[in-house]
Amino acid sequence: MNTGSDGSGEIAVATDGMDVGGAQAEQGLGSRAPEFVKARRVLHLSWQVGVFLIGLAVVGAGIVMLPLPGPGWVVIFGGMAIWATEFVWAQLVLRWTKRKVTEAAQRALDPRVRRRNLTLTAIGLVIVAVLGGIYLWKFGVVMPWKIKDQ
Rank of each mutant, 00 (worst) to 15 (best):
M1K: 08
N2A: 06
N2S: 02
D6L: 07
G7I: 01
S8G: 03
I11Y: 11
V13S: 04
T15Q: 12
D16S: 13
D16P: 11
D19H: 00
G21N: 15
G22A: 08
A23N: 05
A25S: 15
E26C: 01
E26D: 12
G28V: 05
L29H: 06
G30K: 03
R32S: 12
R32W: 05
A33R: 04
F36K: 05
F36M: 05
K38D: 00
A39T: 04
R40F: 10
R41Y: 02
L43S: 10
H44F: 12
S46A: 09
Q48E: 07
Q48M: 12
L53P: 02
G60T: 11
G60A: 15
G62Y: 06
G62C: 08
L66W: 11
L66C: 07
L66E: 02
P67T: 04
P67C: 03
L68N: 10
G70L: 11
G72L: 07
W73Y: 11
V74L: 12
V75D: 08
V75P: 01
M80Y: 13
M80D: 03
W83K: 02
E86G: 01
F87L: 03
V88W: 00
V88A: 06
W89D: 00
A90K: 07
A90R: 08
A90V: 02
Q91G: 07
Q91Y: 12
L92Y: 02
V93W: 14
L94S: 10
R95E: 13
T97S: 15
T97I: 14
T97R: 13
K98H: 13
V101M: 08
A104H: 06
A104Q: 13
A105M: 06
Q106E: 12
Q106D: 06
R107C: 01
A108M: 09
L109N: 14
L109R: 15
R116C: 02
R116L: 10
N117C: 01
L118K: 06
A122M: 11
A122L: 12
L125W: 07
I127T: 09
V128Q: 08
V130P: 08
V130E: 03
G133M: 05
L136H: 11
W137R: 08
W137H: 08
F139C: 00
F139Q: 07
F139T: 04
G140Y: 05
W145R: 02
W145F: 08
I147C: 06
I147L: 12
D149H: 10
D149G: 04
Q150V: 09
